[in-house]
Design a protein around this nucleic acid. Sequence first.
DNA 1: TGAGCTATAATGTGATCACAATTATACGTA
DNA 2: TACGTATAATTGTGATCACATTATAGCTCA
Lengths: 235, 235
Amino acid sequence: MDKKSPINLNPPPRNEGMTATQWVYNCLRNAVMYGQILPGRALTIRGLAQMLGISPMPVREALRQLCAEQALEMLGTGRVMVPKMTPMKFNELCEARVAIESHAAARAMPYIDSAVLNQLRRTDRSIDCAQQAGDLGQITILNQEFHRILYVANPHQVTLSLIESLWLQLGPFMRLATEQLADYYLVDRHQEALTAIEKRDAYALQLAIASDIRDGLAFATDPDLLNNLIDNHIL
Amino acid sequence: MDKKSPINLNPPPRNEGMTATQWVYNCLRNAVMYGQILPGRALTIRGLAQMLGISPMPVREALRQLCAEQALEMLGTGRVMVPKMTPMKFNELCEARVAIESHAAARAMPYIDSAVLNQLRRTDRSIDCAQQAGDLGQITILNQEFHRILYVANPHQVTLSLIESLWLQLGPFMRLATEQLADYYLVDRHQEALTAIEKRDAYALQLAIASDIRDGLAFATDPDLLNNLIDNHIL
DNA sequence: TGAGCTATAATGTGATCACAATTATACGTA
DNA sequence: TACGTATAATTGTGATCACATTATAGCTCA
């Protein structure tokens, strides 16, 4: 188990009123989501506490929470590490995203009013800007934002936490996907989704979201290529 | 927020080698899953620690984990309570179960060998026995067992933790469902699933699981009835 | 040179304590 | 009797410490 590879926590400023646990949680969540920590890297309570200049207590709580969300993995001994990826697991995560998110999208349809639609359009335009600017990190964030806005339109939403668990597990790879396909794939599928919403066609929306996800992760359909990426730590 | 209603933790024996945190986690998880704690009931760290005769530390960790799994809800002040149910939320949870579990079942199909099939048959027979004995708690447990065996047949399974999160949120109600419909619904749908497996028909299996879930929760399709049950704390 | 053992260091777990914020209770006033 | 305030109790948060377990590094011996 890797114990030395660098960790770029890039800690965001700690807003007042925010507990230390929340702050650590955000740090680690971002680091995992955007691939700042290599799979297999061991995380120790005291090590992280020292990096962040706080006591071990909040780190313990944040680690446990992230393990519960499948963002990190706790071994039998209590040791915590970033889970390793395999091609088969990647495929399962991808298909799980399609199943759950297309469901969530269809369920949100009846609740999408013009305000939500405008919010989606605005986010889509922001993605365009980020694309032209070549800001890959921003594209990833805004793409997630687009999906989130869609799903939480449903006020009785219960699947967002499940979806975010999948995002966390796929996080580093989604960034890579954006990198490879940034030029063309995003806009089209989002437009397709927006059109479906305008027609109030839940099924068409479901299909658009499914295609969006599949397109976004299509770069990794070849197990050999994916294994290469994993082994070479390109992530 | 309810602060006084009784809590039946019914703590299981603490096996050696099991950490205090794991033990508390199991206690609370079971209590939530089987409706031993009323929705809205406030849970305090010190209170639970005293009930279980341990220090507050393991309780804190267990509570945070259960909140991450949506089994409990953490308010802005850090207070923890059992989430309240609404008819709309119930419906969303039910449909989310159908979407995810039927997906997981179809994905498991290629991996179901005769060993797994026999395990499923054995569990199904145990459910029969529990039904004739009228042991409702056992029926609920075995029914979950049946589903779990099916899903984990897929060695690359990534949805089980998501599914269990939904089970936790629906827990108390599933027991009630079993109570109302114990006489007839379970066996038929499980037989349907077993037949689909024998024919190696993933789509038929998917439909059987979807029907099984819908039948099991059909008792609560009427919002008024459901509201009555919630308000009257029959759970 | 390399496999196995030992001593040392590092780590997770759990307990206790201090503090600030929140909540509950009791009191006094209108 | 109802309401607002002040006091007291409760609670979550975070830090520090002790302990048992596990991992690591160094050494010995074949």
